[in-house]
């Protein structure tokens, strides 16, 4: 139930973000979602794509440092309290969230939350216990690309 996310190291300089994006576009790879974490000196671009292996090869060929990490996507209702429900489920458990980001798509009334946990397997188990909708890769791709 885990997804592969690609992280790319970027210097915090003008124009740096376009390089990996152009490389992926040239290879015909569609970015399902992305998030950017920045500091004063550098940034980390996090991407989810359908064919992560191909995307990794493309990025590495373009000279990027790429890391593949496992993240967990959860579908929630796009309404007040959607995120809170998930956080509440995790609160009592000893699961640490390293970071997270969220996105909505099309006109659906759903939102997707992407989490990076210190222990993704344990987190998935706990989320499923609470009957939360943890998305498999295929489910996510279908949701986003339908």
């Amino acid at each position: 139930m885990k997804l592969h996310q690609l992280s790319v190291f970027l210097e915090n300089k003008p124009g740096r973000l376009s390089e990996p994006c152009v490389a992926l576009a040239d290879a015909g790879i569609n970015i399902l979602t992305l998030s950017l974490a920045d500091t004063q000196q550098f940034g980390i671009l996090r991407l989810i794509v359908r064919d992560w292996q191909k995307a990794r090869d493309v990025l590495e060929k373009a000279g990027c440092v790429v890391k593949v990490t496992e993240v967990v996507a959860i579908e929630v209702a796009d309404q007040p309290g959607g995120l809170a429900t998930v956080l509440k489920a995790l609160e009592s458990e000893s699961v640490n969230i390293e970071y997270m980001y969220a996105f909505t798509f099309r006109s659906e009334d759903k939102a997707v939350l992407v989490f990076r946990f210190d222990d993704p397997d344990a987190a998935v188990a706990k989320l499923q216990d609470r009957k939360l909708n943890v998305l498999s890769p295929v489910e996510l791709y279908e949701l986003v690309e339908q």
Binding site: S7, F9, A37, T39, F42, I44, V65, V66, Y99, R116
Partner: peptide
């Protein structure tokens, strides 16, 4: 130069390395 060996997808990890 950042190498795959030292790259972390977490800001904290890279800051620590630095």
């Amino acid at each position: 130069e950042v190498t795959p060996e030292v790259f972390s997808d977490e800001v904290r990890g890279l800051e620590q390395f630095r």
